[in-house]
C-alpha cells in the first residue's frame, strides 16, 4: 500500500511520515514538498492514499487534489484524500460531513489513528466488489471538492453582457449569448463561438464569476460550456466522458469531478 504526503514544511512532512509508520507499518510513504510535485508524483506512482497540506507554495492542496483526480483517468478507484491543515476554518467546516477525512496540525496520534482506521475500512470495502462500486462511494467526496473549489469566486459579481477580446489590433465585442464554450489554455482563455474564436488574458475563474452558472456549466477545471449547446455526451473505452456540441466539430473532455451532471443519462 502506497501513500503520498504533500507538505512544504520538511519537519512536518517527516513527522507525519513517522507517525504513519508507527500506526500502519506496511504503508509505504513518499513526500512531495509542493503542490506541483505532488500532482506529478501522484500521477506517476498512483498511490492509494494522499495526505495533502492545504496551504502549499504554488498549487495548494485543494487544487492539487482536483488536478490529480482530473488526470487520474482509466476508471479505477480514485486515491483516498486526507487534508492536513493548520487553520482553515472554511475547509474544516466543509469536511466535517465529508466522506474524506481531514487532520489538524499539530497532528495528534490518537486523531491520526482514527483517520488510519477510517482509511483502512474504506480500502477494504473497495477491494472485493470493486467493479460494481467504482463511482458510487467517491461521489460525496467529489461533491465536497466541487464546493471547496468554487468558494473563492465572488458570488455577487455583475453578469457580463459582452466579452471584450483583442484580435490583432482590433477590439472585438463578443455578445455572451454567442459564446459556445470557454476553455483555459496556458495563461489565456479561449472563447469559442460558432463563427470565430479568440484569446483572453483574463483567468478563467474571473470570467466564470461574470457568467450565469445555470447557463454555462463547468465540465472541467478549465472548461465552461453553454448547456444548451451540448448535443451528446459519450463515454469512451477508458471510461472518460466527452461532450459534442451543436455547430462545432470540437469535442470537450468532462472531468470526473464535474461529470456528475451527466450521470442520469
Amino acid at each position: 500500500m502506497q501513500a503520498l504526503i504533500a507538505e512544504d514544511e520538511p519537519l512536518l512532512a517527516a513527522a507525519l511520515q513517522r507517525q504513519l509508520k508507527a500506526l500502519w507499518p506496511t504503508l509505504e510513504t513518499t513526500i512531495a514538498a509542493d503542490g506541483a510535485t505532488a500532482v506529478q508524483q501522484a500521477l506517476a506512482h498512483r498511490p492509494a492514499l494522499l495526505f495533502l497540506d492545504i496551504r502549499m507554495p504554488g498549487i495548494d492542496g485543494l487544487e492539487a487534489a482536483a488536478q490529480i483526480i482530473e488526470s487520474w483517468g482509466d476508471g479505477g478507484p480514485l486515491p483516498l484524500v486526507v487534508f492536513v491543515t493548520a487553520h482553515d476554518e472554511h475547509a474544516l467546516a466543509a469536511f466535517a460531513l465529508a466522506a474524506v477525512d481531514y487532520v489538524q496540525k499539530p497532528v495528534q496520534p490518537a486523531r491520526l489513528a482514527q483517520t488510519v482506521a477510517r482509511l483502512q475500512a474504506r480500502l477494504s470495502a473497495q477491494a472485493p466488489g470493486a467493479a460494481a462500486a467504482v463511482s458510487a462511494p467517491e461521489e460525496p467526496f467529489l461533491a465536497q471538492l466541487r464546493t471547496l473549489l468554487s468558494t473563492p469566486t465572488p458570488a455577487r459579481a455583475p453578469r457580463l453582457q459582452v466579452i471584450q477580446a483583442a484580435i490583432g489590433n482590433q477590439l472585438h465585442l463578443i455578445p455572451v449569448e454567442e459564446v459556445l464554450f470557454a476553455e483555459a489554455a496556458d495563461k489565456y482563455v479561449r472563447i469559442v463561438t460558432r463563427e470565430r474564436e479568440c484569446l483572453l488574458r483574463t483567468p478563467i475563474r474571473e470570467l466564470q464569476a461574470g457568467l450565469d452558472p445555470a447557463v454555462f456549466w463547468q465540465i472541467h477545471r478549465g472548461t465552461l460550456v453553454r448547456a444548451t449547446a451540448i448535443e451528446t455526451v459519450t463515454r469512451d473505452a477508458a471510461g472518460r466522458q466527452w461532450i459534442h456540441l451543436r455547430g462545432c466539430a470540437e469535442k470537450l473532455a468532462v472531468s470526473r469531478i464535474w461529470g456528475y451532471r451527466f450521470r442520469a443519462m
Binding site: 514544511e9 512536518l12 517527516a14 513527522a15 493548520a86 487553520h87 482553515d88 496540525k105 499539530p106 497532528v107
Partner: peptide, 18 residues
Amino acid sequence: EPHMLFNTLANLRALIET
C-alpha cells in the same frame, strides 16, 4: 496569526521527538 502559530507548534511537536 493562527496559521503561523499552529504550524510553529506543529514543528515544535516534531522537534521534541527528534
